[in-house]
Design a protein around this nucleic acid. Structure first.
Lengths: 106, 106
DNA sequence: TACATTTGCAACCGATTGGTTTCTCAAATA
DNA sequence: TATTTGAGAAACCAATCGGTTGCAAATGTA
């Protein structure tokens, strides 16, 4: 049972759930209303999201509200960091090239 | 055959390949040397990465060098954008709370 | 108390995944 | 020319995935 954040966001439905509950907590039933699938299927997705701590439960009577743990998404941001450095460098190099061409035209 | 970038980076071996070839192009054999798996398995991963345009091939004799298409990784960055706004807002709100507490102590 | 609602969980199913083995093809080398 | 090397493609396999159905537990309501 490999359960990491990258595998969690691989599924388009799970990404949609994340976007959906980003602004306000929602119950499984309310979430399922937004998709062409069953509540149970959403429930399974929520379990996966919970297992990798992307989502948190808040029991309220018999209803369970799911909220997004936004800070967990920063792990993806952190992984991208190493490439961000590279793509910025490459753009800088491109800038230099353009600058050189500009100067030569003068 | 759903082939999107999120599914591509879901596999840890593929993420490692991406990191490996980020700085310099490499052949399948050279890549495979870095993992406890066969060349054929790496080849399959490279095919998936190629299909979603995360990686580009450069034939050189009988060797094929694979390079990373860093700009494709920006699609993930783009998806994160919507949440970045939220997490910055939440931190700002937290700042306000802390500021209020500070003022009350005065 | 009896019934309805909300939810999680287990069992099952077809499709997909990641890996291995085998095969073929093209390029380099003896 | 014969052999070795680098690589992709196909066939196969066990494991996992996403979805459905059915059931049980807990909470709310008549």
């Amino acid at each position: 049972m490999r359960r990491d954040i990258f595998q969690a966001i691989a599924d388009p439905t799970r990404r949609a759930i994340i976007t959906l509950i980003a602004l306000q907590a929602m119950t499984p039933n309310a979430i399922a209303d937004n998709f062409h699938t069953t509540r149970q299927s959403v429930s399974k997705h929520l379990r996966i999201l919970t297992e990798c701590e992307l989502v948190k439960q808040e029991q309220q009577g018999r209803e369970i509200y799911y909220t997004l743990e936004i800070k967990k998404l920063k792990e993806i941001d952190k992984w991208l960091e190493q490439f961000r450095k590279i793509w910025e460098t490459r753009f800088n190099q491109l800038d230099k090239v353009l600058l050189t061409i500009k100067k030569q035209k003068k």
